[in-house]
């Protein structure tokens, strides 16, 4: 089984802006790992780097390595990465808005042999039966929740081993977010997937995850298993919004600790 490992990755945009510095993380087979952090922390950049689509934004992996199942992803074209078994649900769903639902899902299976595509499409419709009545509708007119299902179904078409989801909760009602995360948990079992989840909604993400990493300004400032993160006072205060005003801490202490630890290791 394939494991994703990112080792000391450093990513620059336009050779000037450092988006990611010394980030290391692993996603073991069958694991759900979530990546938390504020806007601009570098979460999406990391996913783009793994999918090999930094070209359009002139991003470059300048140090470190990205490996999947022992093979280096750096320098691989995006279509080879899809073939290697990594699919991504991009931020904001990004459906092909003027294609129909079925065409959108079929596009996910672009790398499959033609004979397998129809069968896989039927499997996707089994996972998301709600999409069946909408299959000939233009995707841009679906509701946000339905669009998210199409986006996930589209990514699943390629029979990935690792599914990366970039903020699946973005712009959706809490009830729909809950359904989406249930689906994610079910999919891990049913499809034997590893999942790398980027989220702003820390609580719901940590609840389905096994492990979590917190990114801030391109660095991992905190990591551990999901339970520990949920219980940690820093996470509760800064990401879950629980007020502990009696003993206010500065996040700087935390990072300082983290930095020292890295020098030692």
């Amino acid at each position: 089984m394939a494991e994703l490992s990112v080792i000391n990755a450093q990513i620059f945009y336009d050779r000037t802006v450092e988006a990611i510095r010394d980030v290391s993380l692993t996603v073991a087979p069958g694991e759900i790992v979530c990546l938390l952090g504020a806007n601009g922390a570098g979460k999406s950049t990391l996913l783009k780097a793994i999918s090999g689509i930094m070209g359009p934004e002139r991003g470059l992996l300048t140090k470190g390595s990205l490996n999947f199942g022992g093979v280096s992803l750096a320098g691989m074209a995006s279509e080879q990465i899809v073939r290697a078994g990594i699919s991504q649900v991009p931020e904001g769903r990004r459906l092909f808005v003027d294609l129909t639902v079925e065409e959108n899902i079929l596009m996910g299976g672009f790398t499959l042999p033609a004979a397998e595509r129809g069968q896989r499409l039927a499997e996707i419709y089994q996972i998301f039966p709600d999409l069946v009545p909408h299959r000939t509708r233009v995707a841009g007119y679906l509701s946000g929740g339905q669009q998210q299902m199409v986006a996930i179904g589209r990514a699943l078409m390629a029979r990935p081993k690792l599914l990366m989801l970039d903020e699946p909760s973005l712009g959706l009602a809490p009830k729909i977010v809950a359904t989406i995360f249930e689906t994610i948990a079910v999919l891990r079992k049913a499809e034997g997937l590893s999942i790398l989840l980027v989220e702003q909604n820390a609580r719901i993400a940590l609840e389905v995850s096994d492990k979590g990493y917190v990114l801030e300004r391109g660095r991992v400032v905190f990591d551990g298993d999901a339970r520990t993160l949920l219980d940690s006072p820093e996470i509760q205060e800064f990401y879950l919004g629980m007020d502990r005003s009696d003993d206010r801490k500065s996040f700087r202490d935390l990072k300082h600790y983290r930095r020292r630890k890295r020098w030692l290791s």
Binding site: S51, G52, I53, P56, A77, S78, E79, V82, R83, S87, Q88, P90, R94, F96, V97, D98, L99, E103, N104, L106, M107, G108, F110, T111, R154, A158
Partner: peptide, 19 residues
């Protein structure tokens, strides 16, 4: 279909494995 998809969103089309 990939041509129409690329017209709609080229980057995502790359994510689907389209060269």
């Amino acid at each position: 279909i990939a041509m129409r998809a690329t017209a709609s969103d080229a980057t995502v089309s790359m994510l689907m494995g389209v060269s």
